[in-house]
Nucleic acid binder design. Structure first.
Lengths: 170, 170
DNA sequence: TATGACATGTAACTAGTTACATGATTCA
DNA sequence: TGAATCATGTAACTAGTTACATGTCATA
């Protein structure tokens, strides 16, 4: 149950409405987690019921701005420090590679080439994020940069691997 | 819906029972996808109803050995070649990094160190798989090796990144 | 005044997890 | 004969997706 913790983490950085959080998912955090609008509003409701967040301001158009409570902060820290971070790996694109024996070598190379392209696009997008975000001295910026660097290394790895893999298919 | 395709892909390599497939998930494919026993048997039932697999032999203890049908092979190829492989990224361990500002620098370093350890364990496990599997000339072996190489590169990247990240925290 | 961004919610579905339940076969 | 492994299934739950539904506010 990580959406819950993503929401708590974002609200620990700064309060915001469901709409705000959705933007933040799309923008900075989209690389490592995503959520649909529907799921997000549902989770906000549950977190409020559980006393982990509370409405601290209301705005126009029914806007409800949430902030994290002490209970919520406690839950966030518990998750960060005491819950085993290992999770079931789930990579659809790598899963496909296993089964490329079911198509022709040319088609297999084509698939791997697409994987390489996707990695390149990702690198490009991350470079844009890097230059467009104004990195201040906040914790959010600091750890955000660590995650960004991870994304860059990951994309580069994937690109190199895809090129290598294409060469392996005679 | 990738479990369905994982099952089709495995049965395209060779027929097997639910129990067999479960072993294969744990063993070779665990790095990129996993499934619970419960989910697997459910999916086998649905695939049989859909005419994508069929029971081709029965054994002791109610064992049902499935094989893929032409309809199933068609579905597998469709998925491999025509379905956009991009999927929502979902990395719980990286998500946590975003929020390390909510704990002390020491605790943050501790978390990153754990990530590095996990990567090292993974490298070790993959090395064991590499030496224990008998890599023949089959397609399954060939593409399996590509995936294994990906895992090795991924783990090495993660380990290096974790070491770098720890150094960033003053 | 109409368009686009802001803003929230619900219903119905698919995917995945955890726990329970049962029984057969092998082999030490 | 007892333990490990083989083997399948169901029930109840949580997580995530897609589609629908509604309305407000700013501004061009």
């Amino acid at each position: 149950m990580s959406l819950r913790h993503a929401v708590l983490g974002m609200l620990a950085d700064e309060p915001g409405s469901g709409y705000d959080l959705l933007k933040r998912f799309e923008r900075a955090m989209g690389n490592v987690w995503s959520a649909t609008q529907s799921q997000l509003y549902g989770e906000l409701g549950k977190l409020e019921t559980a006393g982990m967040i509370r409405v601290h301001a209301e705005g126009p158009r029914g806007r409800k701005e949430y902030e994290i409570t002490d209970t919520g902060l406690e839950e966030l820290r518990h998750w960060l420090l005491e819950v085993d971070p290992r999770s079931a790996p789930r990579s659809g694109s790598l899963l496909r590679v296993y089964f490329l024996g079911s198509v022709s070598p040319d088609q297999a190379r084509g698939y791997l080439a697409t994987m390489g392209e996707v990695a390149k696009e990702r690198e490009k997008r991350l470079a844009e994020v890097e230059s467009s975000v104004d990195w201040d001295e906040s914790n959010e910026s600091f750890y955000g940069r660590l995650v960004l660097e991870w994304g860059k290394r990951y994309s580069a790895m994937q690109r190199d691997w895809a090129e290598w893999a294409i060469d392996q298919i005679k």
